[in-house]
Amino acid sequence: MTQNVSVDDETARQFLEGMLRIDIFEEETKERFGEGEIPGFVHLSGGHEGSHIGMGAAMGDDDWLAVGGARLIGQYIAKGVPLPDIMAELYGRVGGSNKGHGGQMHVSDIGRKLYGHAATIGSGQNPAVGLALAEEIQETDNVAVTTIGDGGTSRGSFHTALVFAAYWDLPVVFVIENNEWAISTPAESLSPDHLSDYGIPHKMATESIDGSDVEAVYHTVSEAIERARNGGGPTVIESRVARLVPHFEGDKETYRDTDEYERLKEEKDPIENYRERLLERDIVTETGIEDMIANIETEVKEAVEFARESPEPEPEAAYDHVYRTPLYGQGENQ
């Protein structure tokens, strides 16, 4: 089945390039983690690249992203955080986006309006509501987009965020990345037909889309953002994707059916599908893609070099950033 390309050629190439950037960066991350260079956990985004890039492209520079789920790195890249900042943060180095205080689960970049992530899954949505409230009070037309996995939608805090967003009709776009698994727990066992149905009782706009199609995500999130910008209130989108990687590096995935997994890899790989789609329509050429890949590989290599060369934090830096001091009025009477 051939699918139309619904965006201009340049945008289409950027989508492909964006997805490849996530993929190549993460392949390198996996290698570096395997070599013991990266501490902590590493969760990869395989299968979510289209959802991330489509969402990122739909957002304006001044729209907030509060990251959720466990497929994080792709979202940081989609929000435009430079690769060296991300890689050095994974390494826990001074040159990282958060000076090594955050790590893989906590990349934030306030200048780019990346709020960061609540590593306690499902706690990022109420802050997103607060970000939207702040924008509204400051009389901007910026919106807050927040992602969550299928697993996270079972947390009460997610439902509370829907209540609060609906209460003031705030400009929030909830994107549920349903990859059918919360570690080993299948989303299938949850009762709604679509997880976006959770927005229905709040009279929100809801959409359930094929999230492995970057263009579908782009159009749907764009529409939701437009609606929110124009005072139309929140939207809940279910972006249906496949998790084509283990939950985290080291997960043996004994709970997955091998045939089904292979089928998903064949059918739901957003990069492979889009690449074919663009090739068929002569929007890119094989050599064009090879050039793209070569350029990204250079970027990623530079990011790794930057991370490796960035110093380890001095141990005393552990005490920085707990408080902004002096506290209000402190020391003024002495």
């Binding site: 802050p127 970000l131 409230l133 965020a161």
Partner: peptide
């Protein structure tokens, strides 16, 4: 009412929204 707001009954909502609003510049 823009500056003084009743919220629905959820401390999670109140505290979480406060965090986001503060980060967002208010």
């Amino acid at each position: 009412r823009d500056r003084v707001r009743n919220t629905p009954l959820s401390e999670i909502g109140i505290a979480g929204m406060a965090l986001g609003a503060a980060v967002g510049g208010i």
